[in-house]
Write a protein that binds this DNA or RNA. Structure first.
Length: 566
RNA sequence: GCGCCUGUAGCUCAGUGGAUAGAGCGUUCGACUCCGACUCGAAAGGUCGCAGGUUCAACUCCUGUCAGGCGCACCA
């Protein structure tokens, strides 16, 4: 891959006293405005060492630089050495590479032979899939695709919330008020209304709580009636979630919920005990983390039953043994930050050096009008409703603008869903989100449909051009600001993917796509692509093809479709 | 009370210690005989929460402080 910055730092290292290539590479930066060049070296740090004022250093450095083909101009401006690259060479190298590598442009094989476990989505069984679950799902999915792009072998695990006292409540409610046909018909909706009813009735009749505890205990003991009902609830829920995952284009390699670990926790508890980590406190068994400035990690309740942390520690060990992961990533809300810090610390204390490969990827909280989402009070927006609305709005726009589109429904779905995913991946994941119908259904500006539309527009031009041998392009014809700036942005793709992965932050790709779309649209607006002059046409088409390639790869990395016509 | 996170334009947000702090929405003005106008250009809009400190240089690092969010023992 052509890295202009690397070439420049190689060259500079011959003239900058006491600085090696790597140091110069790290010091080189992109000036705030293109009039100041493509790369700049601030000379302030050299001042002390060289005992000369920065302005003088910059000037003598600029003067000593020899004439080379890939640099057009070197200027010294108030302490900076500004470097202007040769546009033709830059564009030539970039286009040649993108045309040559195509959809693998920006990818690598750095992950070959390494397993990445990504624990994401993980909805609670018998509860509706609402917009609160969306974030884990789309962030996890984007990370999955990004790691895969870099050659890693990914294992996406849906760690379903399929165990816990709520099943005792649900069994009681179903036995008292449930109706099999109704459940078969309305699925999770009916399970939720049973759950809600349980809480309403329990207000006036506390004995219901005891019954629920009894039935959960039965479930844990393996009572067949309880187990059968539990399995049925799980199956119903999974069936419904499957539809949503299908619409979102999300796949898992494994559905392995909490229940899976029920019979695997005891050995881990024993191990904790054997390693002298387990101590009794207020009747419960804990791992004390006071020396780590953390509250204790609860392992067993005073009645001897297990807890969230017990299960997560068990699951981590199981995953390490099963997949020998290079990294294991948990995509959950920020409210679980302390929990994961404790769990990771306990694993470290158990003597497992792979604790450093465990990563919590937190994201901010979703609220509606300042209130938190809660299934119990009905304060939720179902993802299904959101997607339906987004799709029908897109369908209406297509009907208005492009009624002759052949596969309208499919495209409406791709763009409607795309809008929702894109908006969720647009800001840094740690930011809290206040849900608003207006905002999420507004497709103007920096949105998924904008990027998808731009991609389709590029496709349209290429289609119209017919089969052209793009590799015959002449980069010297692409020297305008708009063309060069688009090429520079496209060249950033590999480093953006890398950065997004380093920071486990999909929004870096999302924002980058907006930059690409914007640069392409400006280029498109200022320059005609399908011009008479064949050489010019071929060259601009090659640039269009490169933009299309990057847009498509980028969209797919964050889990969006890139339809050719919209 | 303690801990973590967040505070940047009216709103939603970008911003690897470096040059004049940037987008989108909204507002105002402008560009369609033209490859798809879900487009493009321009204007207006800022004490980067506040106060200290480090530095040649701070939105960025450190300390303090204020505001909001989240968490802090038997839920997950």
């Amino acid at each position: 891959m052509y890295d202009a910055k690397l070439e420049v730092s190689k060259l500079l290292s011959k003239y900058a006293e006491g600085l090696n290539e790597q140091q110069l590479y790290d010091m080189l930066e992109v000036p705030p405005s293109p009039e100041m060049g493509d790369l700049a070296l601030p000379c302030f740090k050299l001042s002390k060492h060289l005992r000369k004022p920065p302005v003088q250093i910059a000037e003598s450095l600029a003067a000593s630089m020899p004439k080379v083909d890939f640099i057009d101009k070197v200027e010294a401006v108030s302490g900076y050495v500004n470097i202007f690259l040769n546009r033709t060479i830059f564009v030539d190298k970039l286009l040649a590479e993108v045309l040559d590598t195509g959809k693998v442009f920006g990818s690598s094989d750095e992950g070959r032979g390494k397993n990445i476990v990504i624990d994401f989505s993980s909805p609670n069984i018998a509860k509706p899939f609402h917009i609160g679950h969306l974030r884990s799902t789309v962030i996890g999915n984007a990370l999955y695709r990004m790691f895969k792009f870099m050659g890693y072998n990914c294992i996406g695990i849906n760690y379903l919330g399929d165990w816990g006292t709520q099943f005792g409540k649900l069994i009681v409610a179903y036995k008292k008020w449930g109706d099999e046909d109704k459940v078969r018909k309305d699925l999770v909706k009916e399970l939720v209304s049973l759950y809600v009813r349980f809480h309403e009735e329990a207000e006036s009749d506390p004995s219901l709580e005891d019954e629920a505890r009894y039935w959960f205990a039965q479930l844990e003991k393996g009572n067949e009636e309880a187990l059968a009902l539990w399995r049925w609830f799980v199956d119903i829920s999974l069936e419904e979630y499957a539809k949503i995952y299908d619409v979102l284009g999300v796949k898992f390699d494994l559905f392995q919920g909490e229940a899976f670990f029920n019979d695997k926790m005891e050995p881990v508890v024993n191990e904790l005990k054997a390693k002298g980590l387990l101590v009794e406190s207020e009747g419960a068994m804990i791992v004390d983390l006071e020396d780590e400035d953390m509250p204790p990690c609860l392992i067993l309740k005073s009645d001897g039953s297990t807890l969230y942390a017990t299960r997560d520690i068990t699951a981590a060990i199981y995953r390490k043994n099963t997949f020998d992961f290079y990294k294991c990533i948990y995509v959950t809300g920020v409210s679980q930050s302390l929990h994961f810090k404790q769990v990771f610390k306990v694993i470290e204390k158990m003597g497992y050096d792979w604790h450093k490969d465990l990563h919590h990827v937190p994201f901010g909280t979703v609220s509606i009008g300042g209130e938190k989402l809660a299934t119990r009070t009905g304060k939720v927006i179902l993802l299904e409703d959101l997607l339906t609305q987004a799709i029908s709005k897109t369908a209406a726009i297509i009907e208005e603008k492009n009624a002759d589109l052949p596969n309208k429904e499919e495209v409406a779905c791709q763009m409607g869903v795309g809008a929702v995913i894109f908006s969720d991946l647009f800001s840094n994941r740690i930011k809290d989100v206040s849900f608003s119908w207006d905002e999420i259904l507004n497709f103007d500006g920096e949105t998924g449909p904008y990027v998808q539309y731009t991609h389709a527009r590029a496709c349209s031009v290429l289609r119209k051009a017919g089969g052209v041998e793009l590799k015959a392009f002449d980069a010297s014809l692409l020297k305008s600001d708009e063309e060069y700036s688009l090429a520079k942005t496209l060249a950033d793709f590999p480093s953006k993917v890398k950065q997004a992965l380093d920071e486990l932050e999909p929004s870096i790709i999302t924002r980058y796509l907006v930059d690409v779309a914007h640069d392409f649209n400006r280029f498109y607006h200022v320059h005609s692509i399908l011009v008479e002059d064949e050489a010019l046409r071929t060259s601009r088409l090659a640039l269009t093809q490169a933009a299309k390639t990057v847009l498509k790869s980028g969209l797919e990395l964050i889990g969006l479709s890139a339809p050719e016509r919209v």
